[in-house]
Every structure is written in structure tokens, then in C-alpha cells.
């Protein structure tokens, strides 16, 4: 009996350790960030732990969801997509969480999809998290305003095209709060390790890589004095970058709220 209790406790401790190793990441997922042709593209909005396809949090009604489309020297055009969102249940490996989906008719150039989700209450920490998230999809190779801020209060602005990275390239971004760089911002990085299965609204059970130790699940880097960070991309696929707590004084409903900026990029193998 005593032995069973010890085993159970050990298991709980291990589970606890695993849970803290990966971070909450707001995702805007679509399979391909660099399309040859336009057409309807699927978008899934999921608040989850992407490396281990772990606990998926219930999303509330987002505050904002829009796209800024730009092509060449044309003026960027903003389109509100909030009304197009449909609630879905997203299946992680451990639970089911409330998420959203939509589809978008993409034409040529850059499409910067931007999400400001409802603040999420993290009961264990008695505080909220709000991750303003961007993903940039290009159609046809003609660039637009991918390197321009869209004006979110917290935002990561790419300094390298987020859709043209080969595996082994670096990705650079600048962390902004109210349009100004955030020196030495802390950035967490996670790999989307389990393929999202669009038809099932679920993660694939099998991950692509195994982390040798918990530190590799959630990597941490810091921006420099100009708010610029650099990351060498070791593997093809989607990578999430989350700059944490950019507005230390921010609160929501009387409680602390971590205002984070997230960007997702996709790298491809040279083959």
C-alpha cells in the first residue's frame, strides 16, 4: 500500500514536471505558410501546449481577429474576420478544449493574420494570460508588408521573412510594446511537434521528435537591447515564439494579466 502511494506520488511529480516544461501557446494554424496559388485556406485557432500536444485551454470569444493583406507597393488592406469564426472542440492528447476555426479566400501577396484572444484565466496562478498572435501566409511569392507592425499593443515584428526560411536559417524578430522595442524581452520557443489533423480537429498522436530533457521542450532566449532576438531553426515545420509579460502593469478584472506577443513561422527542408 505504502509502495503504491509512493509510486503514485512519484507519478504526480513527474506529470507536474512535464506540465511546467511546456508553455501555453496561442496558435493560428494553417498547413502552409507559402502557397503557390491562392484559394480557400483553413485556419484553426487553438490555445495549447504544442510540443507535447498537451492540455488545450478553453478559448473565450476573441477580442479581435483580422487579416492585413498587402501585395507589392499597394497599400495594406485590413479585413475583420471575427464574424467568420466558428467554435470547435480541439482534441489534445489529454483533453478537449474550446477553439475556433474559419477559412479564408487568399489571393496574392502577404496575409498577416492577427488574433487578440480573450484573456485566459489561469486558476493555478490566479492570473490571466493574453497572447496576441500573428501568422503570415504568402501566396505566389510576391512580398508585401510582412516586416511592418500591424499596430497591436504587443507584437513581434519579423526581421526575416517568416515564410521563406530554410531549415538551418536563422529567424529574427523585434519585440514591440505600444510600438516601441522591448529590450531584453524573454522569449519562449516551442516546436509544433504533433501534426494538427484538420478533419478531426485533433493533434496526431505521434510526435515527430522526442526531447532529450525537459529544457528542450520549451526553449528560452532573450532579445537584445533593441528588442531583437535571433533563433537558428533546427528542423522543418512550425515554430512558435512567445515574448512574455510585455506590459507589467496590465491587469484584467482586477487580476494580473500577462500580455504576451506570439508569432509562428514555418521552415522547409532543402531537398
Amino acid at each position: 500500500m505504502k509502495k503504491t502511494l509512493v509510486s503514485t506520488l512519484a507519478g504526480a511529480v513527474l506529470l507536474g514536471a512535464a506540465a511546467t516544461a511546456s508553455a501555453h501557446f496561442q496558435m493560428i494554424y494553417t498547413p502552409d505558410s507559402a502557397l503557390n496559388k491562392g484559394g480557400s485556406i483553413p485556419l484553426k485557432l487553438v490555445f495549447t501546449h504544442p510540443f507535447d500536444a498537451g492540455h488545450t485551454m478553453d478559448m473565450g470569444q476573441p477580442e479581435q481577429f483580422f487579416v492585413v493583406r498587402s501585395r507589392g507597393e499597394n497599400e495594406p488592406q485590413r479585413t475583420d474576420l471575427l464574424d467568420t469564426l466558428t467554435p470547435i472542440d480541439w482534441q489534445s492528447l489529454t483533453n478537449s478544449g474550446k477553439a475556433f476555426e474559419t477559412s479564408y479566400q487568399a489571393r496574392g501577396g502577404d496575409h498577416i493574420f492577427c488574433l487578440v484572444p480573450a484573456p485566459y484565466f489561469e486558476a493555478e496562478e490566479d492570473s490571466y494570460i493574453q497572447q496576441s498572435t500573428k501568422v503570415i501566409v504568402n501566396v505566389g511569392g510576391e512580398p508585401g508588408a510582412w516586416s511592418e507592425p500591424v499596430g497591436l499593443p504587443v507584437e513581434i515584428v519579423p526581421l526575416a521573412k517568416p515564410y521563406d526560411r530554410w531549415t538551418g536559417n536563422v529567424f529574427q524578430g523585434r519585440v514591440l510594446f505600444n510600438g516601441k522595442p522591448v529590450p531584453y524581452a524573454e522569449i519562449e520557443i516551442e516546436y509544433l511537434n504533433h501534426e494538427p489533423l484538420l478533419e478531426k480537429n485533433a493533434f496526431a498522436e505521434k510526435g515527430q521528435v522526442a526531447a532529450p530533457q525537459d529544457a528542450f521542450v520549451l526553449q528560452t532566449i532573450f532579445a537584445d537591447e533593441n528588442g531583437v532576438f535571433t533563433y537558428g531553426i533546427p528542423r522543418a515545420g512550425w515554430w512558435g515564439f512567445a515574448a512574455l509579460g510585455l506590459d507589467p502593469d496590465y491587469s484584467y478584472e482586477g487580476k494580473e494579466c500577462s500580455r504576451d506577443a506570439v508569432i509562428w513561422i514555418q521552415a522547409r527542408d532543402m531537398k
Binding site: 501585395r71 507589392g72 507597393e73 489571393r107 501577396g109 505566389g140 511569392g141 510576391e142 512580398p143 508585401g144
Partner: peptide, 27 residues
């Protein structure tokens, strides 16, 4: 400076072609 051109059916018997260059310059 690669030329780029994509065309889309507007669904109303018209077609719009978008031209440009890979460096983002105007066509």
C-alpha cells in the same frame, strides 16, 4: 527581380490578374 502574375476568377464572369515582382516592386 522575378516577374509574378496570378489570376483569379471573381465569380462574376470577370477575372482579375495581379502582377508584380519578387522584390515587391510595382508592375
Amino acid at each position: 527581380h522575378t516577374p509574378l502574375c496570378s489570376c483569379f476568377d471573381n465569380g462574376d464572369d470577370t477575372i482579375t490578374c495581379e502582377g508584380g515582382y519578387s522584390d515587391g516592386s510595382s508592375a
